[in-house]
Design a protein around this nucleic acid. Structure first.
Length: 118
DNA sequence: GGTATGACGGACA
DNA sequence: ATGTCCGCCATAC
């Protein structure tokens, strides 16, 4: 359960007033393709482990929870710590995305290598 | 081993 | 901008 533990630790380290994306957390946890596992961790453990789950949003800067399934609460919790979300749940990533300390030029994803399309 | 799940992401029309 | 398609992979069973 290494990956899951790293994800939880990362989520706990997101400061108030900032957000992180699923893909970002997956990459920081060691697997840039495991965004879905981050979602799964939140789904299954955010309540039990008291995680600041509302600071996790999708790569387009949006709230991924549906209306009536947490959307409103997430928006409210974010607003309460100074992160505004518009009516569609959109947050300005450029202004509020968490940047973990210690990384100079964070390479969250491997460079795209040339690929031939058959 | 296999199947199902999951609050996803990127590419493309 | 919106919507669809498909790859991805850690877990649970």
């Amino acid at each position: 359960m290494e990956f899951e533990d790293r994800v939880k630790s990362l989520i706990r380290s997101i400061p108030r007033g900032r957000v992180a994306t699923y893909a970002q957390l997956a990459a920081l946890a060691g697997n840039h393709r495991a965004a879905r596992q981050v979602a799964r961790v939140l789904h299954s453990s955010s309540r039990k482990d008291r995680l600041p789950w509302h600071r996790v949003i999708n790569s387009r800067g949006g709230i991924s929870l549906g209306r009536g399934r947490g959307f409103e609460e997430q928006k409210r919790l974010l607003k309460a710590e100074g992160v505004p979300a518009d009516r569609s749940g959109r947050v300005d990533l450029g202004a509020f995305q968490w940047e973990p300390p210690g990384l100079h030029g964070p390479r969250l994803r491997p460079p795209r290598i040339a690929v031939v399309r058959p």
